[in-house]
Design a protein around this nucleic acid. Structure first.
Lengths: 248, 248
DNA sequence: CGCATTTCATTTATCATACATTATGACAAA
DNA sequence: TTTGTCATAATGTATGATAAATGAAATGCG
């Protein structure tokens, strides 16, 4: 019940991983530069070599660094980072340029989610559909904005799972982080009826097994979702067609 | 349990990571089950506890496992794995069901790459375009199938980078692994003229800054690429529309 | 001087051991 | 049944020692 915030009681090596990883992602240690030697990091953070080494292994596993004897531990070019790794993502979103990153994540989502819905229409099982429907119903029944957003997230995640393609799942994870971040400040209360209708349209298409309808319904949904994001976070989220509209 | 592989000059902890990670991905240690205790793994593989712990950290970072004192180290549900992590991907492709996984990866690629090309059309810089063109030229000049495939990979990767959106890059990485695997046995020599023409079409659309043309050209390219895959690897790669065609 | 070779020092890689921390399961007490 | 205590087993952390690798300086030689 009284679940303590695990931010305070996280293991030491996680904290070190966070500090080092974060400082790499925010560019404090430029690409190609070397981290301080193990021993030095130990002193700086007042932890044992065990902890530092394990943190370095974790970061190596995420593609952020590589280490060789004598030459030290260097930061690899960002092209080789596992940018969709939840931790890397989090470190990105901690920076000052949140909106830039949220916009980029939305670009990826716009690419993937219509296809995911189409796949869901042809691959979803009973349980998948039940989860998607539960998301819709949850949005319907939501009293608070928090409940609404939570149900919204559940709905979209269920679609990714319904593809029965595990390589779509990390995108869903990414998307959860994104959406949660997007609406921490303001939540889209006004367009709820329309949003609900559009979510139902996706659900219906999937239930009917109509891949094309599911894809198109999702495109519509995402377009309006982009509108909300523009309203809430700013113009970074505009699509090309919207920019055109505004210019006229 | 931990099947030995013939790793040659890789570090010890990488080997241990591979053996444990691989056996998890191939399902030898079911979801929710616990790994043998650290000390036991040490004995089984004849390595120090340091190495085992670092391997476990790496796998934890990839979302495969989580460990708590006393209760042990458990395998997390696959929904939480970083499925697009290069190592996880590799462990998947080591299984007997390669074609299944290649097909799923191709589904993701089909979703992402048209959007990537569209973004490239509006975001690519001079250097990006140069790299894409170099890919085309390389395919043109290729004498061997290896050269051809290498240039092909370079071409597609360049498109992902040209999006200027780092969250598309991991997909490019994934795609490299995929394509290399796909054509290890047979290479598509016959359709080279057509393939070249279609690649040029994508390039031209990007140079012209025409996002829609780039998207459509990529869709065409991928459709024919799927044909090749069906020819080489089997029917798992058929798209829905192709299945329809065959049924008639 | 130019070039190959050797030596050396620095840093990571691995090993071994000890101790700390934490959660589980058993058992006792209320 | 509930609650509390405790032993225990597993991971978490710390430390010192040694091995291996490698970049750079020193050396030797033509």
């Amino acid at each position: 019940m009284f679940q303590t915030s695990n931010a305070l009681r996280r293991s030491v090596h996680s904290q070190v991983t966070d500090r080092v990883g974060s400082s790499i992602v925010r560019g404090e240690i430029g690409v190609g530069e070397t981290l301080p030697p193990e021993m030095q990091i130990c002193e700086m953070m007042d932890v044992s070599r065990t902890v530092v080494r394990e943190a370095i292994r974790t970061l190596t596993g995420k593609g952020l660094i590589e280490s060789r004897p004598k030459s030290g531990t260097r930061v690899r070019p960002p092209e080789q980072w596992n940018q969709l790794d939840p931790d890397v993502l989090r470190w990105h979103l901690e920076t000052a340029e949140i909106d830039r990153y949220l916009a980029k994540l939305f670009q990826l989502r716009s690419a993937v989610e219509p296809a995911a819905a189409a796949l869901a229409a042809t691959h979803a099982g009973e349980d998948d559909i039940a989860r998607i429907r539960a998301g819709c119903d949850g949005m319907d029944a939501a009293k608070t904005n928090e409940d609404f957003v939570a149900a919204d997230i559940a709905f979209h995640q269920a679609i990714y799972f319904a593809t029965r393609n595990e390589f779509f799942w990390p995108i869903a994870q990414m998307f959860e982080i994104t959406l949660r971040q997007s609406f921490t400040i303001a939540a889209p209360g006004s367009h709820r009826p329309r949003a609900l209708r559009e979510h139902r349209a996706v659900l219906d298409a999937i239930v009917a097994g109509d891949a094309e309808a599911a894809r198109e319904a999702t495109v519509v949904l995402l377009a309006h979702s982009a509108d909300d994001l523009v309203r809430i976070r700013g113009r970074e989220f505009e699509t090309a067609s919207e920019r055109d509209k505004r210019k006229r």
